[in-house]
Computed example of a mutant assay.
Amino acid sequence: MQYKFSENVDALQPSAIREILKFTGMPGVISFAAGNPAPEAFPVEEISRISAELFEKDPILALQYNITEGFPELRDVLKARMAEQHCFDETADDLITTSGAQQANELSCKVLLNRGDTMFCESPSFIGSLNAFRSYGVNLVGVELEEDGMNLDALEQAVKENPNPKLVYVIPNFQNPTGRVMSLEKRKGLYQLACKYDLIILEDNPYGDLRFAGTPIPSIKSMDTEHRVIYSGTFSKILAPGLRVGYVSAPKEIISKITVCKQVSDVHTNIWAQAVCAKFLEQTDMDTYLEKLRAVYRQKCNLMADGIRQHFSKRVRWEMPEGGLFLWCTLPEDCDMPAFCKKAVSEYQIAVVPGNAFLVDESAKTSSFRMNFSTPTDEQIIKGTEILGGMTREMLD
Rank of each mutant, 00 (worst) to 15 (best):
I200H: 07
F88I: 04
L167P: 03
G208F: 04
D76C: 10
S249D: 05
Q299T: 13
M182A: 12
M395S: 06
M320L: 14
S232L: 00
F280R: 03
I255G: 01
I60Q: 11
S363H: 13
A213V: 11
Y297D: 04
R75K: 12
M1P: 14
P37T: 09
C121V: 12
A194C: 15
Y207L: 08
M119A: 15
N205P: 00
Q2D: 09
E122D: 10
F280N: 03
C109D: 03
S129Y: 13
A92E: 14
S367V: 07
K221M: 04
P124F: 00
L61P: 13
F23T: 03
L210I: 05
V245M: 04
T392Q: 05
T288Q: 15
E90A: 06
E394S: 14
M371A: 04
G25V: 07
H311T: 03
L243E: 01
A38E: 07
P216C: 08
Q85I: 00
K166M: 11
N173V: 10
M150V: 09
P338W: 08
P332Q: 13
F88D: 03
N131W: 14
E56F: 12
Q102V: 14
T91N: 11
R134P: 08
F326P: 02
A240K: 15
F133G: 01
L290C: 12
P43M: 10
T392L: 02
I217S: 02
L202H: 11
Q310N: 12
V168K: 04
T366A: 08
A295G: 11
N173H: 14
Y348C: 02
K4N: 10
Q64P: 00
E322D: 11
G307Y: 00
Q263D: 03
S265K: 15
L145Q: 13
K196F: 07
A132S: 15
M391S: 12
K166T: 08
E7G: 02
R370H: 03
N105D: 09
V353P: 00
A11R: 15
L107M: 13
T385H: 04
F126Q: 10
C341Y: 04
C87E: 06
R81L: 08
G35Q: 02
V29I: 14
T234W: 01
L396Q: 13
S135G: 14
P163I: 07
G35V: 05
Q2F: 09
Q274K: 10
D89Q: 10
Q380Y: 00
C341F: 06
N66L: 15
D378K: 15
Y3A: 15
M337A: 11
M337D: 01
Y136L: 07
L325W: 05
R115C: 15
S249W: 04
